[in-house]
Design a protein around this nucleic acid. Sequence first.
RNA 1: GCGACUGUGGCGAAAUUGGCAGACGCACUAGACUUAGGAUCUAGCGGGCAACCAUGGGGGUUCAAGUCCCUCCAGUCGCACCA
Length: 1122
Amino acid sequence: MSEYKPQEIEKKWQKVWKDNQTFKTEFPSKKPKYYVLDMFPYPSGAGLHVGHPLGYIATDIVARYKRLKGYNVLHPMGYDSFGLPAEQYAVQTGQHPAITTENNIARYHEQLDNIGFSYDWSREVRTSNPDFYKWTQWIFVKIFNYWYNKESDKAEPIEILYQKFAENGNAKVKAVCDEDIKSFTAQEWNAYSEEQKHEISLKYRLAYLSNTFVNWCPGLGTVLANEEVKDGVSERGGFPVERKEMAQWSMRITAYAERLLSDLDGLDWSDSIKEQQRYWIGKSKGCMLTFQIADLSSFKNLEGLKNATATPPSGGGGLSVFTTRVDTIYGVTYLTLAPEHELVDKITTPEQKAKVDAYVHYAKNKSELDRQADVKTVTGEFTGAYAINPLNNALIPIWIGEYVLAGYGTGAVMAVPSSDTRDYAFAKHFNLPIINVQEGEKTDITKEDFDPKAGTMINSDFLNGMDVKSALEAMTKRVEELGVGYGKVNFKIRDSIFSRQRYWGEPIPVYFKNGLPYTLDESQLPLELPKIDEYKPTANGEPPLARAKNWVASSPPLGEGIGVGLNSQLQNANLPSWQTTDAIKWKAIKEKARELRKNQTDAEQTLWYALRGEQLGVKFRRQQVIDVFIADFVNLNTKLIIEVDGGIHLDSDVKKYDEYRTEVLRNLGYTVVRFTNEEVENDLDSVVEKIRSKISELPKLNPIFANSQKIPPLTPPQGEGNYPLETSTMPGWAGSSWYFLRYMDAKNESEFASKDALDYWQDVDLYLGGSEHATGHLLYSRFWHKFLYDLGYVKTKEYAKKLINQGMIQGRSNLVYRINGENKFVSFGLKAKYETTEFNVDVNIVENDILDIEKFKNWREDLKDAQFILEDKEGKALSFGEGLGGAYICGHQVEKMSKSLYNVVNPDDVVSKYGADTLRMYEMFLGPLELSKPWSTISISGVSRFLRNVWKMFYDESGKLLLTDEAPNDKELKVLHKTIKKVEEDIERFSFNTSVSTFMVCVNELSDLKCHKRTILSDFLIILAPYAPHIAEELWEAMGNKNGISYATFPKYDEKYLVESSFEYPISINGKVRHKMNFPANMDLKEVENQALASAEIIKWLEGKAPKKVIVVPNKIVNVVL
RNA sequence: GCGACUGUGGCGAAAUUGGCAGACGCACUAGACUUAGGAUCUAGCGGGCAACCAUGGGGGUUCAAGUCCCUCCAGUCGCACCA
């Protein structure tokens, strides 16, 4: 081939890779693993622009590089395919969001394929596929059935909580739970009905339903999470958001606040993201204080209250306040409550009631937007009530003010106007007293340099003279001794709202019985999205799912039953009936089965290896729960159960139990075959033969049961009514909170991922995506991962070791200037002479800032008859058509790449013009990955030229291969090895732009050396392959290699080729380079100094004086100080 | 207001540990080859005639600063009454 034709070779190699499954990940594998992941894309209707693939190219380079380095690489891609845009489209047009989503994905996929990514597409996942969201729902069920034990500091099964309640009541239980918990004893608990117990447990579960103030967005018809609201409007769509109280599902992420915070330290993530998360979690150490409300009946004259003291009433009650500055307690001159605070009504005096009511009304009706926009104006009202300072019994007035947030701390603050700027502003505004409690530099709150933690304490009794830190410690100790407060850590992070009143999301697998929520059984998952006729909320405001017919749980699983435990089953010949069982206990059985699966006997292990992987033509599961029993091995489509018994089964009671169990299972339609351990271990062949013949005898059921996750409900639903299902769906972040685990074992039908896969892949080595997910996806996914860690499913506390946030590629817009009042456009250089209005013009009809006037005229109807004032090279005006030298020069500016600004560049266009390899290298060449930078199509020619130069090292103009078998010389080896070294270092530190430069330098140098030597070029191609895989494959094949370059080994650079025998020292005088001298690299430093000083040039600079000092840095520089 | 990041030619940038500032590429200029040039090749290309001056401004540490410290300015992003 004489010419480099990227379009031809790229299609060719993309097909080869696909046909040969070149990038299919090995599993199992003996190689070390490397997991490189891109953030989950939402397939939007607009398709990709050149900014999107930036990160994908970077990760693809790393993936290809790591493969060449001998790693087993997991490099998957999939789609976060639930989401609002497809649903908004559905609401407007009635088209099912699945169709929209499917179309968008097809387009995305095609665009991605064009760029030659090395994804293992066999692992593609989509969050909206039932076989994916089955597991999202499964995790939800787990979260619902766990609580957070603060003592063990992890999530534990709700059964353990039940047990604790049954033993000791709830007083001693240290759980993360709702605030409004009533205490009960073990006796009381045990007397509660199952339903009452369940109701109480809801306050402890990690997923719970509660009435909370939420961000309600009428425009979208749904609630939004805090991070989905920006500046009082929805992040998507920009609709106004209001506060509304609704019953909502929430996730107790607050239970994980401390761990989410402290584990950040070990992560190799950008400081910016870690800081944002720290801030969002918002840990503050402080003190919880109780202020008693003063009984004012003994005071006749309210004026006398100033500087008065009172004895606090005994007993409980009072007002709780959280403060981080308990050391300033002697400076408290008033308390402020949030207008929503529950005590406001109770303490407000009759005289103040009207004013307070008016203020509360005002504050409540203020929208989020107004409240956020106006934080400067001080507002508030006096309640008429007084509290008592617990340290000195001083009476202090209680105010309400909107600057106090109901949701943070206790919704009340102790105001210290001398140490807190907000309190100061409030005190100044309402003329409240101020007591200074700190003195020294920077303690004056009215000054610019005020530092709240500066100085030493004054007016503070025993704290006087201490610095802030010691005062804090001392006072915390004192309030604890006095029993008026205690040290407490507070977090800003709130539990996250988990329900969305939308259609296009995972249904929450919950049904309601007597108004209480229960999760569906795992065997009933996935709970698939129902078909509905319209995607809007119903007329009475219910979510779209309320439109679905029969949206009920058809088999409310496992109602009230008799207590059964595995041990009691073995010990007690009085055996359970199979039709009912206890839901909670049933869960325990599943847990038990899981445990057994991990601790197989030798015989079980031996038989499992013989049965697994459909070796007998059908699929076996092991330790499978069938009703209340655990079957050793079961094939579901022949309903064949195989039991392997050890010695224990010879015991007569156990035998009796076995017989009973066989009977029950037979009633359920199962056939049970038994073998002893000895039979399996000594004569496996005949055991297998017996199983084989049994299978052939048995009728096969619907194959769907054999292969799919859709195991029919194991407990018959007879006799129970239909229970309504939850109508809200999960938020967008549900699926993306765990998808990275699914890639490890994407096709698994019996688990979200197998233990083997999870153990091998562990975590993501490199995660790449935008920083906009800092407090959303990146926090929630860490939370879910930690939950799964607590349950023992994953081994790592964090799922992404290294995170890089790629910068945005900005658009480079072109502008044209229309003379006001005319349909005439003036070129950029001449526009100053006219009054003009600028317009964005489509960058695709502009090249190198020169407008294609014919295309412009056809661009829009109103431009058909447009006229132009052009400029020539000297900036002289020319009319269109007059002469040839004139052109319309457009202005330009860098802004967001967006359709509305006509500056979108589609990667498909770039690929069809220059090729995918050029696009890949150019995107990397633009600059450091993390930085934002503008796209410039014109500059791409440099990279395109570079690839043609690569081609020219292999072929001459007539298409003849230039390769020679000559041995390389030192110069060529040096060029090659320094390139290998640099490229390797660059990839390891994710500096892709510099390695593109390095390749260019390498090709320039090899071309100068006229090098066409096979050994050199062969290694060069391998190191180039991660960046420009198509051309590398093509030339690799041209060299006569049979195996693809993807299977090659990355060359090892050898230091010996890089050693220089001499070094050209810059000789500087006072730090400025004046001369250069070549010396042997190993020359004695003193000798270097002497020779440098003896050189004519330097003698000239010395002007006869002796230098003050001479610094010689070996093989770096010589500096002569005069 | 708080926090993080960034600031180097006309443009994208490089300089990894303090050691020759501007590698590599674009654009531009001149020339060659051409019917032609949006192809290719050759050369030049921070400013200044020069001494010199230049890494957002100012100051400091150092033999030596784009790099370290202080301070100010600008831009981008995030958060924003968090007690």
